[in-house]
């Protein structure tokens, strides 16, 4: 990205540490009539079939994703179907993270049981217990992978499995359009430019 991407930023971890990821490891009105649309935003979602995770693993992974972007007044990771994105990524471009995920989940169960004797499933904890547990789990590689997977699954195209019905874009304020007309926001409105700058650019 600029793209000298000096601007982004430390501490993004995740599977498929590819292109920008390497960087991030450190962050008109007189237009003619439009005769075609831009990209096909409605490419079909993939089938809802697990490709790497087992159903038991998927349940734990989804429970963690649901705390990273919780369901509250608005839909969260669960409703966006990020589990399908994460599973699909692990089966494809993120395959180098397969082993970490597969080995970390049993270890997670042991850590949960240690903190909550008699209970060995993260997904069986209350939301408050889950949050408290994750606060001590943020530095673990599994958390980094799932944080990346949850956020990526929330905001990338539905064709990759998550962002169902564009829930993620709705959440963050990215509209499903191919073009905008000015004004784009508050500051570039002519009356506000006049007030701020004494002129309209």
């Amino acid at each position: 990205m600029s793209t000298t991407r000096r601007d982004f930023v430390s501490s993004v971890t995740g599977f498929g540490a590819l292109w920008l990821a390497a960087a991030v490891a450190c962050r008109n009105s007189d237009a003619p009539p439009t005769d075609r649309h831009g990209p096909l935003l409605d490419s079909p979602e993939p089938a809802r079939v697990l490709r790497f995770l087992t159903p038991e693993e998927a349940k734990e992974v989804e429970a963690i994703a649901a705390r990273i972007i919780p369901t509250d007044e608005t839909p969260g990771a669960r409703e966006a179907g990020v589990i399908w994105f994460i599973d699909g990524a692990l089966a494809t471009f993120g395959e180098e993270s397969q082993q970490v995920v597969r080995e970390a989940l049993p270890a997670l169960a042991i850590a949960v049981a240690k903190k909550h004797p008699g209970r060995a499933r993260f997904s069986g904890l209350t939301e408050a217990e889950q949050d408290a547990f994750l606060h001590g789990y943020e530095k673990e590689p599994l958390f980094g992978i799932l944080r990346f997977g949850t956020i990526a699954g929330m905001f990338t195209l539905p064709k990759y499995g998550g962002n169902k019905d564009w829930i993620g874009w709705e959440l963050i304020g990215q509209e499903r359009v191919f073009e905008y007309k000015p004004p784009f926001g508050w500051y570039d409105r002519p009356e506000n430019q006049r007030a701020l700058l004494g002129r309209v650019l």
């Binding site: 600029s2 982004f8 920008l20 991030v24 956020i151 929330m154 905001f155 990338t156 874009w169």
Partner: peptide, 12 residues
């Protein structure tokens, strides 16, 4: 300059 995903991944 970056869309939703990278924005969310790179909050300060």
């Amino acid at each position: 300059d970056v869309p939703a995903m990278l924005t969310a991944l790179t909050l300060p």
